[in-house]
Computed example of a mutant assay.
Amino acid sequence: MKNREIFSSSKLRITAILSITAIILAIPLVAMQFTNEVVWKLSDFVTAGILLLSTGLAIELVIINLKTGTFRTVMLVIILLALFLIWAELAVGIFGTPFAGS
């Protein structure tokens, strides 16, 4: 089965977004059970969840509204770049904003 056929339905893609978000958030939750080096508070999980869900839903909107073309690819790259830059800022503070980590 082709990837297009598997994720052709919007409901399936939204289910995938929710599942992947839950799996990613489970990684630090499980790690916290085995080591003291991972210390996340509830606010960290909420922030990460909002960031991941908003990114997934933004990607879904681009997929729904832009069928093909270079513009669609550029929009997807911009969304993913924004995710990584925000995540890095929250984690280590690469821009020095008040939201910077560490």
Rank of each mutant, 00 (worst) to 15 (best):
A58P: 05
L76F: 07
G56L: 08
D44H: 15
S8I: 01
N65C: 02
E89T: 06
L18K: 01
I24N: 00
N3P: 15
I78G: 02
F34D: 00
I14Y: 07
A58D: 00
L18R: 05
K11S: 12
V92S: 09
T97S: 13
G49I: 04
P98V: 05
I78Y: 03
I17Q: 14
G96E: 01
W40M: 04
I59H: 14
T55Q: 04
L42P: 00
I50H: 05
W87P: 03
M32E: 10
E5S: 07
I50Q: 06
A48S: 15
T97H: 03
K11D: 11
L53D: 11
W40Q: 06
N3I: 09
N3R: 11
F99P: 00
P28W: 07
A31M: 12
V39K: 15
P98D: 05
S19Y: 03
K11A: 10
V62S: 03
R13W: 05
V77T: 09
F34L: 10
T21S: 13
A16N: 11
K67Y: 01
T97P: 03
T68N: 13
A22Y: 02
I63F: 13
F84E: 06
S19T: 12
S10G: 13
E60A: 02
I6Y: 05
F71K: 12
N36P: 09
L18Q: 01
G56R: 14
N65A: 06
I24F: 07
S9K: 08
L66G: 01
T35W: 03
W40F: 13
S9L: 04
P28R: 03
A22C: 15
A88E: 13
T15S: 14
N36W: 01
S54L: 13
V62E: 00
G93Q: 05
T21C: 14
S9Y: 00
V74R: 12
L85C: 08
F7D: 03
A82T: 14
T15K: 12
I78W: 08
M75E: 03
F34P: 09
S8M: 01
L61N: 14
A22F: 15
E60C: 08
V39C: 04
T35L: 01
A16E: 04
F99S: 10
I86L: 14
F7H: 02
P28I: 07
V46M: 14
I20G: 06
L18A: 13
R72I: 06
P28M: 02
V46Q: 08
L66Y: 13
I27W: 01
L76E: 04
S54R: 03
M75T: 12
S102Y: 14
L53G: 06
G56N: 10
L18D: 05
K11W: 12
N3F: 12
M32I: 09
N65I: 08
L90F: 09
T73W: 07
R13Q: 00
E5I: 00
L81K: 06
I64N: 02
S9N: 10
I94F: 10
I27N: 00
T73N: 08
L51K: 08
S102C: 04
R72L: 07
V77P: 08
L29Q: 12
K2M: 09
I94K: 11
I20S: 15
M75Q: 04
F7A: 01
L76G: 02
L42H: 07
F84Y: 11
K2H: 13
S9E: 09
F45I: 05
L90W: 10
F7S: 02
L25Y: 01
